[in-house]
């Protein structure tokens, strides 16, 4: 079948899609966007997290046919050309990337979190990222990266956290 949708704002068409294929497979193997990762294909690791109509979801659990006429956003769409999104920059700076296989999914999930909560508490960060497994970092530097990104975004907005976090 043919599936037509937008990826990172760009109209995209995939042909000869097998009906049982996932959005993840289509992105990785058919439209040249392998940034979203295939670590489990069972929804357990979050490495394949993409935006589907604005909500982060596991691309491995969306049937290709379900994205017809819908909008998908992937890790490849976070940066503005060579300018990294603050979340991406914070992951690099904080040492939150080792093998990096978990990174694309974590970036999308964190990007969503910081759009919804400007000053998330540690507990909120942990709950929001609890569907993104990382086997390398023990998450400490990921926590640092999220805090750093939140602080930098707040700076950019010219707002300080209201009340301290807990």
């Amino acid at each position: 079948m043919r599936v037509t949708f937008t990826v990172n704002g760009r109209p995209t068409e995939a042909d000869d899609v097998w009906e049982g294929e996932s959005l993840l497979y289509v992105l990785r193997e058919r439209v040249g966007l392998p940034g979203s990762k295939n670590a489990c294909e069972q929804g357990e690791c979050g490495s394949c997290t993409v935006y589907l109509d604005g909500a982060p979801v596991c691309a491995c659990l969306v049937a290709a046919g379900q994205v017809q006429d819908r909008a998908v956003g992937t890790v490849e769409g976070l940066a503005d050309g060579d300018t990294l999104d603050p979340v991406q920059q914070a992951f690099v700076d904080a040492g939150a990337v080792q093998c990096g296989f978990c990174t694309p999914g974590l970036l999308v999930q964190t990007h969503d979190l910081l759009n919804r909560a400007h000053h998330p508490s540690d507990a909120e960060i942990r709950e929001a990222l609890s569907g993104n497994l990382c086997r390398c970092t023990g998450y400490e530097k990921i926590m640092d990266a999220v805090r750093l990104a939140a602080a930098r975004k707040a700076d950019a907005r010219g707002t300080a956290p209201a009340g301290s976090e807990g």
Partner: peptide, 9 residues
């Protein structure tokens, strides 16, 4: 249920 991503779907 699962994770935030699972709960979104």
């Amino acid at each position: 249920v699962g994770s935030p991503q699972i709960r979104n779907r």
